[in-house]
Write a protein that binds this DNA or RNA. Structure first.
Lengths: 306, 306
DNA sequence: TTTTTCATTTCAACAGTTGAAACCAGATTT
DNA sequence: AAATCTGGTTTCAACTGTTGAAATGAAAAA
């Protein structure tokens, strides 16, 4: 998944569980007695012409070079409609046409439709339901985070109810080498990416990056993570952030091609030991990671037809 | 300008001058007697609803987090229309809404509208008219090329008429350190990018990359280019490709923020010496480069209104 | 409590969107 | 050479999809 823009700071909590102490229940998007979120109801039917225009643009994106015929086959739309959409997209500057042949391709202006996409907002939105279920299943909070420049950025969290000790909001940047999230990501990502990250961290000041400047120790740790199947929060990090009362284990969220993100479980040492925690929760954690990997792998939708 | 995808191999020559030997004049897009290209005439008026949907999407991209109000102010569209567009974009998966507040942001699916954009196709299309004019002005052919991974990829060329010796099509990949295009790009691009490119080239087999493995010589050459204001084709490259009969000078196409591409002029040694060529053509070349930089800097369009 | 601001919903006017069909042009087949 | 096929372009009337003024709803501010 290409990383186009860095995370931004403005707070946004898509489809997040409503804090029960904040205000009276909303009319729309309201929780019922069993704490399930109601799906919001649209006011309008989708605008068919808009959906079709977008679909034609998406197929051109897929095909790279498109003709009226290829678009007709891909979308099922009438040829006159396709030409109309193409001319509209051309007029708006998103598509160009070869002067000699009736072939079409994207222009750089399409970047203006996607460049501002903040990955962590979207991923947070997608994983929220699964994360909420997972919290209910295991009784401990989790984060999902993705790598961004020199940190793991928390995209979604199920920490909101429960102990204040765990209080973190989406957008929080966690150190790669201090957290189970970052360590899990690093241990499993592609070799080239891993080398690049380590190189970046080695140049970045801060004691959490010390191990990046000690390749042997780091390499050994990453190997251990891969052998065990999970990563653990750094003991010093736990001491510094939680006075040593919290531990966490994390695993990567990965599909066939790449590591997309990582997920952890955070627990109190006083309630559950690392040994017990791993025994009880590693499998559910890995299962949930696999499910999330599926959800986060972008696939085209069905064609827009009337 | 972000580099999202590598160049693809399929030949595409947008808005290119029609080869006069190929077939009878076309009914549309036909050249008149003075060799000017007629602008192709659309069959339909643009679909207003589609244009509006795209405009709303573009503004969300710009704002990162949008409300009905902010979109109303930015686009001038009626609030009911904006909600309708938002719900359509949400239904199609390109936009998500926060459950608590009426705020909207892009999803990762917008990448499916731009990911397949091939930069060199678009740049080739934009620069073609200017390049054709420039060819008429100076009498010698030019290329515009951009950096891509480990080479300069030719996006557009005015070599088609004239000597077969110059025959190159868009999509051709030229060695960075062998050509005036590559050298000009390298000499002027940002320090970090330059270091990255040199590092990549140093690791890449091939004798054109030898100088990347000799940092002192390379650094000296780049400094000389910056002092002179132009780069020259490597003498060995000229010998190998053109039997030493051709020389070229190149300059960067750059705006305030970055180097976007580069442009050259190719000349026969037998017809014009380097000294004369520089004296006569450096200024027009630099002027044209500045013009192209403007054309290649993406700016938003006017809002879509009825 | 009242006012303001922003978001949501209704509903009928009307013109924008649509696709069947005709047309065009080049390539291929007979 | 003529007929057929293929893909792109254009016409035109049916009809319903899109629109925005206005009303409504909800929360925030005065």
């Amino acid at each position: 998944m290409p990383r186009i823009v860095p995370a931004r700071t403005k707070s946004f909590s898509p489809k997040r569980a409503m804090p029960l102490v904040r205000r009276d229940p909303l009319q729309r998007g309201q929780r019922n007695a069993t704490n399930e979120v109601k799906v919001s109801v649209p006011s309008f039917k989708p605008v068919v012409a808009v959906a079709r225009g977008l679909e034609v643009l998406r197929v051109i994106n897929e095909e790279r070079i498109s003709t009226v015929r290829s678009l007709n086959k891909a979308t099922g739309l009438d040829k006159a409609t396709i030409v109309r959409m193409l001319e509209t997209l051309e007029h708006e500057g998103y598509v160009m046409r070869d002067a000699e042949r009736a072939v079409y391709a994207l222009t750089g202006r399409t970047l203006l439709l996607s460049q501002g996409y903040d990955q962590h907002l979207w991923i947070g939105s997608v994983v929220e339901p699964t994360l909420r279920k997972f919290r209910k299943e295991i009784g401990w909070p989790s984060d999902v985070a993705l790598f961004d420049q020199d940190a793991m950025i928390v995209a979604q969290t199920s920490r909101e109810s429960g102990l204040l000790l765990f209080n973190r909001t989406p957008g929080f940047r966690a150190p790669v080498l201090g957290t189970s999230l970052g360590r899990a990501y690093l241990a499993y990502c592609a070799e080239q990416e891993q080398a690049q990250i380590i190189e970046t961290l080695a140049k970045t000041p801060g004691h959490w990056n010390d191990m990046a400047r000690n390749p042997k120790r780091l390499s050994k740790m990453l190997q251990e993570i891969r052998e065990r199947g999970y990563a653990l929060m750094d003991a010093d990090y736990s001491r510094e952030e939680y006075e040593g009362t919290v531990w966490a284990m994390g695993v990567p969220i990965k599909n066939d091609k790449q590591v997309l993100a990582s997920i952890n479980i955070m627990m109190l040492r006083s309630a559950i030991s690392q040994e017990d925690g791993v025994k009880r929760f590693l499998l559910p954690l890995q299962r949930t990671a696999a499910m999330l990997a599926k959800q986060l792998t972008i696939k085209p939708r069905a064609a827009a037809r009337g």
